[in-house]
Amino acid sequence: MHRFANPARFLRIARPATPLTFWTGLAIVATGLAWGVFLAPGDYLQGESVRMLYVHVPTAWLSLSAYLGLGIAGFSVLVWKHPLAEVVLAALAPIGAAFAAVCLITGSIWGRPTWGTWWVWDGRLTSMLVLLFLYLGVIALMRAYDEPSQGARMGSVLALLGLVNLPIIKFSVEWWNTLHQPASITLSGSSIDSAMLWPLLTSAVGFALLMASAVLMRMRALIAERKVAARTARMAMAAA
């Protein structure tokens, strides 16, 4: 892993991977959503509103997965002090926050016709809102220090502490009474009909690739910004 945590080696992989993940992701998302909207059947209970599944569920999965990535990056920052792990931390947080926000808003829109309310303070919804606040907290902490490495360390501590929220989100529908339905897809199988499951998995793969492309773009931006800052500092010292 340490071998790949080299910014120069990373850039050699990231430059061709960025457009590849973006265009492939866009094509797969378009396919998955068109499949879900125009070809998949409506639900016998929820009717047409079930079509929100194809954007709400992938964004929920990905905002949780990105937070797990944030925790792993935070661990690498604190233990190995990898400069690339700091970049991953700073790149993942805003993109994960965007996915968490989309998940919360689309869930709220789904809740209105299904439950008759935009929002309830139950375990699943509240723990997802806490996830968004954790993302925002990591971003704020990383920007609160003049020295980027110190900000990354503080952000890493919060990212690691916030990992405890992931099992709370996952099991909230089992631990507490909630309006939110329990998990439909588990390790033992799926209760979703294959006519809906395949477009869901397709759009999830597409959204994952789009997220990967956005994270790669942010990582490239942060590496370039650090290069500019280092070179500017060197030039200022040479001129002095």
């Binding site: 959503l33 909207v37 009717g47 047409e48 509103s49 079509r51 929100m52 954007v55 709400h56 964004t59 989309v102 808003i105 689309t106 829109i109 789904w110 209105r112 016709p113």
Partner: peptide, 12 residues
């Protein structure tokens, strides 16, 4: 219901 679906897709 279709209006809600459109709103969710626009937000996404």
């Amino acid at each position: 219901q279709t209006d809600y679906v459109i709103a969710a897709y626009v937000v996404a």
